[in-house]
Amino acid sequence: MDNKKDLMTVNVGLAEMLRNGVIMDVTNAEQAKIAEDAGAVAVMALERVPSDIRAGGGVARMADPAVIEKIKSTVTIPVMAKCRIGHFAEAQLLEAMEVDFIDESEVLTPADYENHVDKFQFKVPFVCGCRNLSEALRRIAEGAAMIRTKGEAGTGDVSEAVRHLRLINKQIKELTVLRKDELSSRAKELAVPLDLVMKVAELGKLPVPNFAAGGIATPADASLCMQLGAESVFVGSGIFKSETPEKMAKAIVTAVARFDHPKDLVEISRGLGASMKGISVANIGEEELLHTR
């Protein structure tokens, strides 16, 4: 199947299948198994979880192929893996390993500060982070099949994910009430193609699923993001940096299915032990923020 339209159909289609679920960061096969047993809809393979990247410093890169392959052979759910922003060679390796989704991620150290990967050159679908509608539409114009908020990964502080979700939704709403002749100048301001802006104005949503990520650490955080319009959630450090990862993983999965029922969320949240300790975004220096990448 070489047809670009069909490729987009199956790739956006896979993103649709992952809706109303939880995608969990894992660094080895044991964690991947725990995630799958807890009801994760997919796992994200990476070398270190974001909070360890934040604490350890250094250059964060694509995970070791041996780790990714071990994870792939351990679970039956989709396996995603991260490449550095603009590192199309890492993306080529991930595609050669037949991962199901590539996350071109600001959590890793960027390889290119000017350009993102040309995602139309790949068969494997990509997810990209964004903070606002302009970033979201630029990534979609480059071929992303799924968008997620950047949030501020590795903090356990959900405030940036909330900020990004609210802003994108507000900017989408604004498009739906603009006159056609106003959309053109808006497209120019957003620095994105006009046809994409017109499409969003018509649909009242992005043309690909929009998930929440970055700082989600509790069932209530997941509920908050779902109520703000996220179509699924990514949980990074929030699971394997909590006191009881198995329980936390299960709880966040159930929380997404029952996100709008506070009484159920009370039961789901009870006795989970300590969530990840985390760090408030307000206490992070400008140069250490990941979402500005």
Binding site: R19, A38, G39, I77, V253, A257
Partner: peptide, 9 residues
């Protein structure tokens, strides 16, 4: 969707 997740839920 994922049949494993639906089974769990």
């Amino acid at each position: 969707g994922e049949s494993t997740v639906m089974t769990e839920l």
